[in-house]
């Protein structure tokens, strides 16, 4: 219905006193309706920048991004972001954080409360509606971030390392939780991560990006049946996928590290 098409997109940071920096280099990808796509790549490879360009808060230097027939020209709740650092507003109660997107869209008060409550219940936090963000754990806060994004009924959910700030066990639980939520709504998702296992566990398809400037260097179908609850890393199919992805990624990670050392040495 409204697939996302990213066509030949580049992002170049221009700066008057430094050399311009190419962050994203000629990236093209498509996300179908109902599809869960993960993007993995070494840190600093521009995968988050790509996500921000799809949302619109980052302006692409060239190329086109289309959602359905509409060309992306700026930020929109229809391409809702979930941030690594949650980015909740600390002075707003949980329910009012979830309502935030709807409020910006001009949805009237009673309607937005209703929608927000539904989504807060969906992420299992209905009884925390009147708490403030600092009273919740990291995992709970990110659930609020997800509920906030779902409330605007986006065409696509853009998740920028959403579980990156959480501990390993919480991550695991959140992944399962996310799949449960996604199975219901089947909103298409781009999920940026540097965790290969997480990507395999969650996604239909994994896009692998190179070290900076970020290019797409491989794309892998995850042919594991759903639901994947209970699927473990020791499953041979899981391990095989992991090895395959790591083979592609390893040299990129090394290059990225070498570059970081070099720039630190300067």
């Amino acid at each position: 219905m409204s697939e996302l098409r990213v066509e030949n997109v580049c992002l170049r940071y221009e700066s008057p006193d430094r050399e311009s920096f190419l962050a994203v280099d000629n990236v093209s990808l498509t996300v179908q309706d109902g599809e869960f796509v993960a993007i993995v790549g070494p840190s600093g490879c521009g995968k988050s920048s790509l996500l921000f360009m799809v949302n619109g808060i980052a302006k692409r230097t060239s190329g086109v991004i289309r959602l359905g027939s509409a060309v992306v020209a700026g930020p929109s709740p229809s391409r809702a972001l979930v941030f690594q650092e949650f980015a909740l507003l600390p002075w707003r109660s949980i329910i009012r954080n979830v309502e935030f997107g709807l409020e910006l869209m001009g949805v009237d008060k009673s309607r937005r409360r209703e929608v927000a409550m539904t989504n807060l219940a969906l992420v299992g936090l209905a009884q925390f509606e009147n708490h403030l963000p600092h009273q919740l754990s990291g995992g709970m806060r990110q659930r609020v971030g997800i509920a906030r994004a779902l409330s605007v009924q986006p065409d696509i959910l853009l998740m920028d390392e959403p579980f990156g700030a959480l501990d390993a066990q919480t991550r695991q639980v959140m992944g399962t939780e996310l799949l449960r939520i996604w199975e219901r709504s089947r909103t298409k998702i781009i999920f940026v991560t540097h965790d290969i296992d997480e990507a395999i566990y969650l996604a239909d398809r994994i896009i692998i990006m190179s070290a900076s400037p970020g290019r797409i260097i491989d794309e892998i179908e995850v042919n594991l049946p759903r639901p994947r609850v209970g699927l473990t890393r020791s499953d041979p199919r899981f391990a095989k996928l992991h090895d395959r992805i790591w083979k592609v990624l390893e040299s990129e990670v090394q290059e990225s590290l070498a570059r970081q050392f070099a720039s630190n040495g300067k």
């Binding site: 808060i57 930020p75 972001l81 941030f83 980015a87 997107g101 910006l104 869209m105």
Partner: peptide
């Protein structure tokens, strides 16, 4: 800046 970014990402106008 993170708060501002969350507003911007959901399409907040300047006055919003």
């Amino acid at each position: 800046r993170l708060w501002l970014r969350s507003g911007a990402a959901f399409g907040a106008t300047r006055m919003q």
